[in-house]
Amino acid sequence: MWQKLANIDRRIIYALMILVIALSLIKPVGLAIVPTAETQRVYDFIDALPSGSIVYLGFDFSAGGIPELMPAAHSLVRQGFRKDLRFICAGMWVMAGDMADTAFSIVEEEFPDKEYGVDWINVGYKPGGEVLLQKMLSSIYEAAVGRDHYGNDLKTLPLLNEAPTIKDTDALFIFVTGTPGERQYIAHVSSPHNIPLCVSTISVSVPELMPLIQARQVHAGVLGMKGAAEYEVLVGNPGSATAGMDAQSFSHALIIVFIILGNLGYLLTREK
């Protein structure tokens, strides 16, 4: 009997996880989300940028990062466009252009007066990893080989004339899940050129990001889905991250239950 608790079939764990997550998403409880100081700092930083500032957005993740990072990206676009900030998007990951495209898909409906090329540019993915960043320090146009994600000639987009290099932007806000990621931006762009850097990252990368935040190499961070949910609350548009926190809460609780059961089984059979 106790032995069984110590060796629960992993398929049972998988099945219960599906059940708990699905139920939480279908029927959310709506647990209260209180923004932490870290997310507040991100919000305040964007809020303090003067109207018309140009922010570089790095979309350095792939589709797997969407649930945790896209809500933060949507919140940033909302907060930024309400303050008339402008954005130049690019990325070192293959899906960078598509991710930026998804992030700005809310613009047509929510900000009909904003215009592509004037208020935002999607340079998209260009190969080379950190070499791309180094090249953007001298010319975004050349680094992008003259074309944006949609095949437009970048010279025809007025926003790029105001910020021809990444050094000409007022802030960096990057969405990262791995490498190349925040360390490359710190090494080549934000630290050497004193451009403030904010990072939105997935939960699993938060422990690695903390020393960089403490050392202020990263100004502030949106930490995982929890941070994204808090950012949604601060911007006033609760969305998928807020809904996802219920699922995360109950899945964590389920894992803890399994840990307790496993330990009960382990301790009782060991004593025997």
């Binding site: 992993r10 589709a63 797997g64 990062g65 969407i66 399994f258 496993g262 330990n263 382990y266």
Partner: peptide, 22 residues
């Protein structure tokens, strides 16, 4: 892509159950 990434939730559950023993 998202599907493969989200399978991690199952692996995390199973690994935590197996690894966190006193």
């Amino acid at each position: 892509n998202a599907t493969v990434y989200s399978t991690l939730v199952f692996y995390i559950g199973a690994a935590a159950y197996r690894a966190f023993r006193v």
